[in-house]
Amino acid sequence: MNTTHTLRRARRCSFLFSTLLLGITATASAGAQHLSGSAALTSDYVWRGSTQSQGDAAVQAGFRVAGDNGLYAAVSGSSVEFAPQTHASSELDFIVGWTGALGTELALDANLLHYRYPATTVDLNWTELNTTLTWKNNYWLSLGWSPQALGTRQDGLYSQLGARLPLTDTLRMEALAGYYRLQDAPGGGYAHGQLSAIWALAAPLELRLSAHTTDQHARALLGDDYAGSRWEVALQGSF
């Protein structure tokens, strides 16, 4: 066992949970709090172009509490299916952040996100710092950076550019393009794209149909079973 690496991991976990606790405490003391949540059933859990469930269906749920000062804390979870030797069957995401307006048309969201995989036989947990700049509520630029990207010891910088186009009161389209720069990846990283149609059904349900695709570098890095082109259908309810 690498004792130095284990101690570093322990210190990072301690810092993470201290930060999460501070964020939750700050949110709770922010005056009025607002609780929201969601639950979803999806035909395939696709994250940054790659499947996290090996093409199988996934169940997801999340909760968020936000204060009037913009601080928020959230937790979400999903079923996953990685390589058999990892024994990974679930993912939990813990988030603390701040969101607010930067003007009449610009908004910023900055958060610390910790990905955790309980009951695995290997250490897959990792943490990422994310920022999203939104313009007119319909266009966004996101950046996510981590020194332990994908649960490894490599640096990773993820960038995404997206747009939302309302077509009717109940139908909208969303399109995004992303690039994941990974320090030790073949070709330096990979690109992916997504196009979605979202129907607002009887409140509070939404139906999403998404087409995903990745470039050849994603196939080389992740394998054909995880990257490439795929369809996803998801039914989500929010409160």
Rank of each mutant, 00 (worst) to 15 (best):
A177C: 02
L157N: 07
G193D: 02
Q194T: 14
L150A: 05
Q194F: 00
L195I: 15
P186E: 04
Y158I: 10
Q194C: 11
Q148I: 06
E174H: 07
R181Y: 01
G187T: 12
P147L: 02
M173F: 13
I198Y: 00
G144Q: 02
L157E: 00
W145S: 10
L165P: 01
L161H: 02
P147I: 07
D184R: 13
E206V: 12
T170A: 11
M173G: 10
R153S: 11
A149Y: 02
Q148R: 11
L201D: 01
L157F: 01
G162V: 06
R164F: 00
Q154Y: 10
S196W: 00
S159K: 08
L205G: 04
E206A: 15
Q160M: 14
A175C: 10
E206C: 12
P147M: 10
A203R: 14
R181K: 08
T152N: 03
L157T: 10
D169F: 01
P147Y: 01
G156E: 03
L171N: 05
G151R: 11
A175W: 05
L176Y: 00
A185G: 01
G156N: 02
L143I: 15
L201K: 04
G188F: 11
G162F: 01
G189I: 06
P147V: 06
G151E: 02
T168Q: 10
G188M: 13
